[in-house]
Design a protein around this nucleic acid. Structure first.
Lengths: 208, 208
DNA sequence: GGTACCTGTATTGTCAACAATATTGTCGAT
DNA sequence: ATCGACAATATTGTTGACAATACAGGTACC
C-alpha cells in the first residue's frame, strides 16, 4: 500500500470536491489515466472507498459514486447528533483555559460574520468550531466516526449552508455550546450540541 | 470480489472466534493455505478487515491482529452508549404490539436464567435483546456502527460475561429498557439504555 | 412488428511471475 | 564479548497478461 494510499487520497478528495456526480460510473481504466496509476492501485482505492461508504460496487459491474438520499442523510445526522453530543460532553470535561479562550474567539468571530452577512466565512468558522471541539475532546473513536459520517454528507452539507437565514438561527446554538463547554458543564454541553444538530435535521428535511 | 468476499468472511469469523492472538502476524502465504485461496483474495480480505478495524497493516511489514487495549475498549463502549441510546429511543417510537410481547418474553427468560444461575443462557438472551431492539429501531446507520464496534469488542465482551454477579445487576437494567420501550417512552428508553451501558463501562474498568 | 437469441465489445476478476523492502543471521573488528 | 557492517532470506508490493462476465446491437424467427 504505497501508490494505493496516494490514489485513495486523491480519489477521495476529488469525490468530496464534488468532481463526480452521484451514481456516476467509475471505470477503472479511466481512473488509471486520471491519476496516472496502475489498475492495481485504483482497485485498492475503490475497495477502500467502498468501506468508507463513498463508492458502491457490484460484482462484474464495477463501481459508482454512491448516492445518498435525504432519508439516509437524516439517519447519518441523527447518529452525528448523539456522537457529537458525546464529543461536546468530553470537551466540557477536558477543556483547558487556552482552549476555552480559542472557543470564545470563534464565537465572537461568528457573531461578526453573521452581522456582516459573510456566509462563506461563517461556514468556515462552523467547521473550525466543530474541529476544535473534537481536538479538545480527544476521543479517537468518536472523532473517527464523525469523520466517516462527514465524508458522506458533503453534498447535503453544501446544500445546507445555502439555506438563507440559517446562520442567524445557528449562531445562538453555537454560542450555547461554547458557553457550556467554557463553564465546564458537561450535561449542558451535550444538550446544547444535540439541540443544535436537531435543528440541522429539521433544516435537512425542509430542503426537500 | 467473489472469492475475496468468502475469504474476508471466513477470516473475520476466525478472528472473532479468537483463533488468532492479538498482535499475531498474519502472513499472506499462510492464510492462502489455511483458506485455500490466492494471495490476491487474501490481500483484498486483509484490506477489508483493516478498514473494519480488526487488522492493522504497515507498509512492507505485513498485517497483524490489532490489539485493543482497555482504554480503547472504554472509548468504543462510550460511543456504543450514545448510539445504542439512539436505537433504544427509536425502538420506543416504532415498536408494535407483537414486538413488545417479544421484548417482554426476553425479559421473563432473563429473570429465569438469572434465578437458575445459567450465565451462558443469560449471555445469549442479552445478545438477543440488543439485536431485537436494533430490528425494531430499523436505523441502518446506527445498526451498522454498532456492528462495526461490536467486532472490535468480542475479546473484552467475553471477559465481561465472566465477571461473577454481573447478570444479577444488569437484569434490572435490561428490564428497565424493556419496560420503557413497551411504554413507548422514548426519553426513558434512551436513559435506561445509557445507564445500562455506563455500568458496562464501569465493569470494563474494574476488570483491570 | 415484436421478441428471443446470438455475437461482439467493454469492463471487471484472477492469476502467476517479478521487483522492492524489511528482517534475520553471520562474520570480522575492536 | 559486543557492536557494526554486510549478506541471505522471508515477505510484501507491483505489474502485465489472460479469463470471465455483463451489456449493446443486430438478426432471425414467430
Amino acid at each position: 500500500m504505497v501508490a494505493d494510499a496516494r490514489v485513495t487520497e486523491e480519489l477521495k478528495a476529488a469525490i468530496l470536491r464534488g468532481e463526480f456526480a452521484p451514481r456516476q460510473r467509475l471505470v477503472e481504466i479511466e481512473l488509471c489515466e486520471q491519476f496516472d496509476a496502475s489498475r492495481f492501485a485504483v482497485r485498492a482505492a475503490l475497495q477502500a472507498l467502498e468501506a468508507d461508504g463513498l463508492v458502491e460496487r457490484q460484482r462484474n459491474r464495477g463501481a459508482r459514486i454512491r448516492e445518498i438520499g435525504i432519508d439516509e442523510a437524516v439517519e447519518i445526522t441523527q447518529v452525528r447528533e448523539v456522537v457529537e453530543g458525546l464529543i461536546a460532553r468530553r470537551a466540557a470535561e477536558r477543556v483547558d483555559d487556552a482552549e476555552a479562550e480559542a472557543l470564545a474567539e470563534i464565537g465572537r468571530a461568528m457573531h461578526a460574520a453573521v452581522a456582516a452577512g459573510e456566509v462563506g466565512e461563517y461556514s468556515d468558522l462552523n467547521a473550525r468550531l466543530h474541529a476544535l471541539l473534537r481536538d479538545i475532546a480527544r476521543h479517537d473513536k468518536a472523532n473517527g466516526i464523525i469523520a466517516h459520517l462527514h465524508g458522506q454528507m458533503v453534498r447535503h452539507q453544501f446544500a445546507l449552508s445555502r439555506v438563507p437565514g440559517r446562520s442567524k438561527v445557528s449562531v445562538h446554538q453555537h454560542q450555547a455550546i461554547i458557553d457550556a463547554v467554557i463553564a465546564r458543564d458537561a450535561d449542558a454541553a451535550e444538550a446544547a450540541m444535540r439541540a443544535h444538530i436537531v435543528s440541522v435535521i429539521e433544516a435537512l428535511r425542509a430542503i426537500v
